[in-house]
Lab assay of single mutants.
Amino acid sequence: RRRVRAILPYTKVPDTDEISFLKGDMFIVHNELEDGWMWVTNLRTDEQGLIVEDLVEEVG
């Protein structure tokens, strides 16, 4: 499975499927959606939700 790491922190918009995260958080990518969004699991918090790919980098 594809893994990505947050390069910046992010605070979710209330009442959306987004998740908040810290710089350095690792995610497993489940689905890549339109307009650069990804459905992921945050490995630190075990939370699932949407993040935008501009805020993460690939992990080898």
Rank of each mutant, 00 (worst) to 15 (best):
V4A: 05
Y10G: 04
T45R: 02
D54Q: 11
R3A: 09
Q48S: 11
D17C: 15
V59S: 07
P14R: 07
G49D: 00
L8A: 13
E47S: 05
E34Q: 14
L33M: 13
E34T: 14
W37F: 10
E18Y: 04
K12N: 05
R3V: 15
D15F: 12
L33G: 12
F21L: 03
G60Q: 13
D54G: 12
L55G: 05
F21A: 03
H30P: 00
E47R: 06
M38Y: 09
G36N: 08
P9A: 12
M26H: 12
G60E: 12
P14L: 07
R5D: 01
R5T: 08
F27H: 02
D54S: 12
I7C: 09
D25R: 00
L33F: 13
V52Y: 14
Y10E: 02
L43W: 04
W37K: 13
Q48I: 12
G36W: 02
G49N: 00
V52I: 12
L50T: 09
R3Q: 10
T16V: 03
F27G: 00
I7H: 06
L50I: 14
W39S: 05
G60I: 14
E18C: 06
R2E: 06
V59I: 12
D46E: 15
L22V: 12
T11R: 07
Q48G: 05
E47N: 05
T11I: 13
I7Y: 06
T45A: 03
G24C: 10
M26V: 12
G24K: 03
V40L: 01
P9S: 11
M38R: 04
L43A: 06
Y10P: 04
D54V: 09
A6L: 01
D17V: 09
E18I: 06
K12I: 03
L22G: 06
L55H: 09
W37N: 07
V52D: 12
V59G: 06
L43M: 13
I7M: 09
E34S: 15
Y10N: 05
R44K: 04
M26N: 10
G36T: 04
F21W: 03
H30M: 13
H30E: 15
R1E: 15
H30K: 05
D25G: 00
Q48R: 10
R3W: 13
N42G: 02
G60N: 12
I51V: 10
